[in-house]
Simulated scan of single mutants.
Amino acid sequence: MSLLLRCVRPTGRLLLAGRSSSRTLCHQSDVPVDKVASKPGFTRKHHPSNFDRFILVWAKKYRSREEVPLTVSAKELDSARESARIRTCYIMIALTLAGCLVMAISGKKAAREKKSLSNRNLEQRAKLKAEAAASD
């Protein structure tokens, strides 16, 4: 609870007296520091899964899945994930634009042929009424 009181400022001021106000949510002294990650020359290693290997190859970090080593630096994996995420977004944008184009063309074609949902609905209702009258 005391950590919460030190970090949360509902009015823009710190709740504990004696501390100056800053734009950060918590002071750096409140955040625990990882001793191993702060050593110079230390890089986190990650054992890539099959999907991570696919992402690394798709992001063109390696030529094939077999070339991906057993451990990859976390920075390299994050970079590959970012480029794959951006590439996926571009693909989704292109597919959305293609879908819009197809729908606009099909709508104009239906308008030229005088096909609309209201006409189709009226035809179905007339057909159902004719079937109901025939069955009586």
Score class of each variant (00 low, 15 high):
residue 111 A to T: 12
residue 97 L to Q: 10
residue 22 S to A: 07
residue 46 H to P: 01
residue 78 D to W: 10
residue 77 L to E: 00
residue 31 V to G: 00
residue 16 L to F: 02
residue 4 L to V: 05
residue 103 M to A: 13
residue 46 H to T: 09
residue 14 L to T: 10
residue 70 L to R: 14
residue 64 S to C: 02
residue 99 G to W: 13
residue 78 D to I: 07
residue 9 R to C: 09
residue 11 T to G: 08
residue 35 K to V: 14
residue 16 L to D: 08
residue 18 G to S: 03
residue 113 E to I: 01
residue 86 I to Q: 14
residue 7 C to Q: 05
residue 53 R to D: 02
residue 94 A to F: 08
residue 74 A to T: 12
residue 129 K to C: 07
residue 28 Q to K: 08
residue 125 R to V: 09
residue 58 W to V: 06
residue 27 H to L: 00
residue 11 T to N: 11
residue 11 T to I: 07
residue 60 K to T: 08
residue 37 A to W: 02
residue 56 L to M: 04
residue 104 A to F: 13
residue 95 L to F: 15
residue 115 K to I: 03
residue 114 K to P: 02
residue 6 R to C: 00
residue 70 L to I: 07
residue 81 R to W: 06
residue 97 L to A: 12
residue 123 E to K: 09
residue 46 H to K: 08
residue 65 R to H: 13
residue 97 L to R: 15
residue 64 S to N: 03
residue 134 A to Y: 09
residue 109 K to F: 09
residue 18 G to N: 00
residue 45 K to W: 09
residue 51 F to K: 05
residue 5 L to M: 13
residue 6 R to K: 14
residue 99 G to Y: 04
residue 74 A to L: 11
residue 34 D to I: 01
residue 28 Q to A: 13
residue 29 S to H: 14
residue 27 H to C: 06
residue 31 V to W: 00
residue 25 L to P: 02
residue 9 R to L: 12
residue 98 A to I: 09
residue 106 S to Q: 11
residue 42 F to P: 00
residue 115 K to H: 11
residue 44 R to M: 11
residue 46 H to F: 01
residue 95 L to R: 14
residue 80 A to F: 03
residue 4 L to P: 08
residue 52 D to M: 04
residue 2 S to E: 05
residue 90 Y to Q: 15
residue 37 A to H: 03
residue 97 L to H: 13
residue 88 T to M: 15
residue 40 P to K: 03
residue 130 A to D: 05
residue 62 Y to T: 02
residue 83 S to V: 13
residue 85 R to H: 14
residue 111 A to L: 09
residue 35 K to D: 11
residue 84 A to N: 06
residue 119 N to A: 11
residue 63 R to Q: 15
residue 66 E to C: 02
residue 24 T to S: 05
residue 73 S to V: 07
residue 36 V to N: 12
residue 23 R to K: 12
residue 104 A to G: 11
residue 53 R to W: 04
residue 76 E to S: 04
residue 49 S to A: 01
residue 89 C to W: 12
residue 73 S to I: 12
residue 83 S to F: 07
residue 71 T to R: 14
residue 39 K to Y: 01
residue 49 S to R: 06
residue 9 R to F: 07
residue 92 M to H: 15
residue 132 A to C: 08
residue 86 I to W: 15
residue 54 F to W: 10
residue 64 S to M: 07
residue 10 P to Q: 01
residue 124 Q to G: 02
residue 50 N to S: 12
residue 15 L to Q: 15
residue 77 L to I: 06
residue 118 S to R: 11
residue 87 R to E: 04
residue 22 S to I: 05
residue 43 T to H: 15
residue 46 H to R: 04
residue 109 K to P: 01
residue 74 A to V: 10
residue 70 L to W: 10
residue 95 L to S: 04
residue 25 L to N: 07
residue 17 A to S: 12
residue 42 F to Q: 06
residue 106 S to K: 10
residue 131 E to P: 00
residue 3 L to F: 12
residue 128 L to C: 09
residue 7 C to T: 12
residue 17 A to H: 05
residue 3 L to R: 07
residue 46 H to G: 04
residue 17 A to I: 05
residue 76 E to A: 13
residue 97 L to P: 02
residue 18 G to K: 15
residue 54 F to V: 08
residue 42 F to E: 06
residue 19 R to C: 04
residue 27 H to S: 11
residue 129 K to G: 03
residue 75 K to T: 04
residue 98 A to Y: 06
residue 134 A to L: 03
residue 91 I to S: 06
residue 81 R to C: 03
residue 82 E to Y: 15
residue 65 R to D: 09
residue 63 R to Y: 10
residue 5 L to K: 14
